[in-house]
């Protein structure tokens, strides 16, 4: 079967790729384009390790087909930092030691950024429910939630130290 030609924007760059019809966006990102920061933990939309922001919406890239990326604007973990300047969510994950093995971290950072884009002042409960689609088996979520709340405060211009 002929491959599909897709034009999309990934992390601000116009990107073209060829993919099989059945290939997911995650397969395309990892195996076709070589952006391996998005992880495959389940390929069924349950773990969130492949989270990306597509047209402003947080999605599991394993549940999106590559061909659906046609004309879309996509942000992956590789596009969260601006050059060498980390996004506050990334910086706070480091400062709060909100990662251990680091495998779920890209998805959690993308999901956290999506949360703060939509809700700059989440309660702890709102943050917990928003991130309930991102599994972390190492941390027990404590430091992740603290990092997200701290990043939110910083983005709002409040310093909580």
């Amino acid at each position: 079967m002929a491959k599909n030609y897709v034009t999309t924007t990934i992390n601000g760059e116009q990107t073209e790729f060829l993919c099989e019809t059945q290939q997911t966006l995650l397969d395309v990102l990892r195996d076709v384009i070589g952006l391996t920061g998005s992880k495959e933990g389940c390929a069924s939309g349950d773990c969130g390790a492949c989270s990306v922001i597509m047209n402003g919406r947080l999605v599991c890239s394993c549940l999106v087909l590559g061909v659906e990326a046609e004309g879309a604007t996509i942000t992956t973990i590789e596009g969260i930092a601006q050059g060498d300047k980390l996004h506050p969510v990334q910086q706070k994950f480091l400062e709060h030691a909100a990662l251990q093995c680091g495998f779920c971290t890209p998805g959690l950072i993308v999901a956290s950024k999506a949360l703060l884009d939509e809700n700059p002042n989440p309660t702890e409960t709102e943050a917990r429910y928003w991130l309930a689609g991102n599994l972390c088996r190492c941390t027990g979520y404590d430091k992740i939630i603290r990092a997200v709340m701290d990043a939110a405060a910083e983005l709002r211009g409040e310093s909580v130290g």
Partner: peptide, 18 residues
Amino acid sequence: IRPDGVDKVTGRAVFAAD
């Protein structure tokens, strides 16, 4: 801050499947 931290928050860390 851990030495492998930045790689892990930016998606650069190389896991086996990468």
